[in-house]
Design a protein around this nucleic acid. Structure first.
Length: 392
DNA sequence: TCTGGGGTCCTAGGACCC
DNA sequence: TCTGGGGTCCTAGGACCC
């Protein structure tokens, strides 16, 4: 058994992934500002090439704004089939080094390479090999962070983007974290960043020097504890290769708000069908159905119902969400977005087997009832009860 | 600037049970 | 006629991530 290296965690992140795939599909786009998403009237940018970022375009930016910043840019609709195909090749490369690969999205993953160093060299060496393999096999550059923990590895890959590699030695973690903006921590978004800013907490170092009770009052117990630990470089989360999904959903923002019940119900039927199809495809059934409705003024309502029996049937989902919709307050709502979510998932195989078993037992017991009514008690005994022998 | 789509997790209150 | 404490499930909303 070789010793576990001090920095065995890799975070690998493909650079400007969707935009890079679009350049592979059409090499004449190379060197141009390319943006994926934001082709509709209400879209946002999903991915921007580094040329586009020079204009200030960022992902999640409203398309209208991106167009203003970069009028000569190329805007393309997302082609998830192509992204998935390239993502599969990416994952193949990673899996050729270790089975301990945890995909985070199509374009990034964590690896624990502690068991791979004998075969392939140090974690840093493995990172270099992966970068070469990904460039060759996927045709896209990537960035690799190497560290003792997941979140430091992730920050390291962020720091060396694009097309880089950065090792943060375990002994240097606090020095590495100290000057970084607090917003870079996993779990600090816009709102939390604002809250922290009000206390003049701007860097991860500032956060680490703030007494925990103060953070607790600001953020609640769970988040405070979590951020306090991260800011001290503590992150014990392991690389987990597979976790079953907790929910399946589809939603759609309409180009123009809907206000006719007929249109709204038709969209809910379509969304229900897509969710149910996904459930069946992935082998799940859902116990809880959630309707999401975003109104013209952007307020978002959710309504849910938990069913006695799990389902993967579109008509069942539609039945529930249409009732939930009719029970919403007010009338003639203007609907910007509708979503249908299935949660409380159970594996369909297990559920159906249990059901089958239950029904079969139900049938057996009813048959036994009939026989005993005719021939007297003990005339029929299930085989499984006989197996121990008549004398017990 | 006017805000996508697919997810995860947390909080908080109320129902219900022991 | 005043009122415990803990656990679990359900629901609604919200922050956050890519």
């Amino acid at each position: 058994m070789t010793e576990r290296p001090p920095e065995p965690i890799l975070h690998v992140d493909l650079d400007a992934f969707y935009a890079s795939v679009e350049v592979l599909k059409d090499p004449s786009l190379a060197g141009k500002p390319v943006m994926v998403g934001g082709t509709g009237s209400r879209g946002v940018v999903a991915s921007a090439s580094y040329e586009a970022r020079k204009f200030g375009v960022r992902s999640a930016m409203p398309a209208v704004r991106a167009r203003r910043l970069c009028p000569e840019g190329v805007f393309l609709p997302a082609d998830f089939e192509a992204y998935r195909a390239h993502s599969n090749r990416f994952r193949e490369v990673l899996l050729s080094y270790t089975p301990l690969v945890e995909p985070i999205a199509l374009d990034e993953a964590f690896l624990d390479v502690a068991g791979a160093t004998r075969l392939f060299g140090s974690p840093e060496e493995i990172g270099r090999r992966i970068r070469a393999d990904v460039a060759r096999e996927v045709g896209v550059t990537c960035s690799v962070g190497v560290a003792a923990s997941k979140f430091v590895a992730k920050l390291a890959s962020d720091e060396c983007k694009p097309d880089g590699l950065l090792v943060v030695p375990a002994a240097r973690v606090l020095d590495f974290l100290d000057p970084l903006p607090a917003g870079r921590l996993w779990g600090v978004g816009e709102k939390t960043g604002d809250l922290l800013g009000r206390l003049s907490i701007r860097t991860i170092g500032d956060l680490g020097r703030t007494p925990e009770p103060i953070l607790e009052r600001l953020l609640g117990e769970q988040s405070a504890r979590h951020l306090f630990e991260l800011s001290h470089g503590l992150d014990a989360r392991e690389v987990v290769p597979y976790e079953p999904p907790r929910s399946v959903s589809h939603e759609e923002t309409f180009d123009r708000d809907l206000d006719e019940d007929e249109d709204i119900l038709r969209e809910m039927l379509a969304l229900s069908g897509r969710v149910a199809a996904r459930l069946r495809e992935d082998g799940y059934q859902a116990r809880t159905v959630v309707l999401k409705a975003r109104l013209a003024n952007f307020t978002t309502l959710t309504r849910s119902r938990t069913l006695p029996d799990a389902t993967d049937v579109g008509a069942d989902l539609y039945h529930v969400v249409s009732e939930l919709y009719r029970a919403l307050p007010g009338e003639r709502r203007r609907i910007r977005l509708l979503g249908v979510q299935a949660t409380g998932l159970v594996a369909a195989g297990a559920e159906q087997l249990a059901l089958l078993r239950g029904e079969r037992w139900g049938d057996v017991e009813r048959a036994v009832d009939r026989i005993e009514r005719r021939f007297g008690r003990g005339a029929a005994t299930p085989a499984s009860l006989l197996r121990r022998g008549p004398r017990g």
